[in-house]
Design a protein around this nucleic acid. Structure first.
Lengths: 226, 226
DNA sequence: GGGATGTTTCGGGGCGGCCCGAAACGTGCC
DNA sequence: GGCACGTTTCGGGCCGCCCCGAAACATCCC
């Protein structure tokens, strides 16, 4: 692919809006995106196909839904750099100013990775689940019996085995260690949002751990967060 | 400016080729670029205007020539990231792989900044010129009498005072110290190329100091390069 | 099976913009 | 002044593609 082709993918307001909507790593369905950016479903469908073919987005089909998300951290960084240059009129620049450093610091502490927790928080939670025997790494990553019990206690639904693996190791690019992805990772992340343990900082992927969240992560998993 | 507008600037093969041609920081005239990318001068002129208005390029008019260059390091980084993503199909990614780290290491040692020397080499040369009293910082940056003599000895033409300042401090974004820009900085850089003291590594801004260059920088300025 | 919902395919209208050539403009040189 | 050269402005041809609506398809639920 050429530079012009790549840039062309982001050069239309519709496609740019789609990428910006997905920048935090969450998955959206094609219809949601169509409504969000204000185009007909047919139009969104075509543009999504193009973005996927261009390697900017990844899709996951579930029944009649087409879930779509940013293809990887490299894409997210690229889009963010472009957007920040476009907005600020000036420099993202590699060494980065104070603001950039602050943002990266926040992301290093806690952020979403697609739809689950990452950064120091994500890794710490995963470690804690392993230490306490709620997850096991013996035979690939699996949820243990006591893990099932714990999840039930916490009223976190263990997702049924669908097309998506329940647990999956996901390499953390700041911590360089694994954190928990998969359907369970997503469920934990959703719970953390629903219970106001974490909230987004701005529109990016960075998260703030709320006081309630610090309490909860400590009490439930012995994790000191924030 | 919006993300789509910014991306749109790079979304046409002609404009993308122009930006890639300028990626190493050198200045080209409008006509040169037109021939290089294979379009009519009128077309190049229009596209250049658009790129300048978009903040990606900077221009400097001298007589009937229109010199044009990348607007700053932020733009260069942006274009390089996009190009590397487009080519590699995969990741530039902030933390960067080995290849990226190697490139950045090379750039940190020696590179061009627009049309003059930067990186450790550029800073070292500038320091040496100051130490030896060839440049003075007393009353703004100026060339001293002995500096003029030294340049004559080296057969480096001290550029006549034109629209461009002869010497100018240019903040180095890896060394965080000043290096020499302006017309003299460009003349020194040109001399270094002409005399094969340095050569480009690949198509980017990174430079390699040749054995002859190591000898010359050491003998003439006491600079240990490479 | 039948209906509701989400998605895709297809055809066509319409706009934007890329590119060129011709002519005008500015500058430098003889 | 007159010529050469680099650049810009303007008009116009032409292609690409963005977007929509209608219809077809796929899936899920009753």
């Amino acid at each position: 692919m050429s530079l012009a082709q790549l840039a062309g993918l982001l050069a239309e307001p519709t496609r740019a809006a789609i990428c910006l909507a997905l920048i935090d790593g969450r998955s959206w369905t094609a219809g949601e995106l169509a409504r969000y950016v204000g185009v007909a479903p047919s139009t969104a469908s075509e543009q999504l196909t193009r973005l996927i073919e261009g390697g900017l987005l990844a899709e996951e089909r579930q029944g009649r839904h087409r879930y779509v998300r940013i293809a990887g951290p490299a894409v997210a960084t690229l889009v963010e750099d472009l957007a920040s240059f476009a907005e600020g009129g000036t420099a993202p620049a590699r060494p980065g100013g104070l603001r950039e450093a602050t943002r990266r610091g926040a992301e290093a502490r806690a952020r979403t990775c697609y739809d689950h927790l990452a950064g120091q928080l994500g890794v710490a939670v995963t470690e804690a689940l392993l230490c306490r025997g709620l997850l096991s790494e013996e035979d690939g990553l699996t949820v243990t019996e006591s893990g099932r019990g714990w999840l039930a206690e916490q009223r976190i639904d263990l997702p049924a085995r669908g097309s998506r693996p329940v647990v999956r190791n996901c390499l953390d690019w700041t911590e360089r260690r694994n954190h928990l992805g998969g359907a369970l990772g997503a469920a934990l992340c959703r719970a953390a949002f629903d219970r106001s343990w974490v909230e987004r900082i701005g529109t990016g992927r960075a998260l703030r751990v709320t006081p309630a969240g610090q309490q909860a992560f400590h009490d439930l998993l012995g994790v000191r967060a924030g």
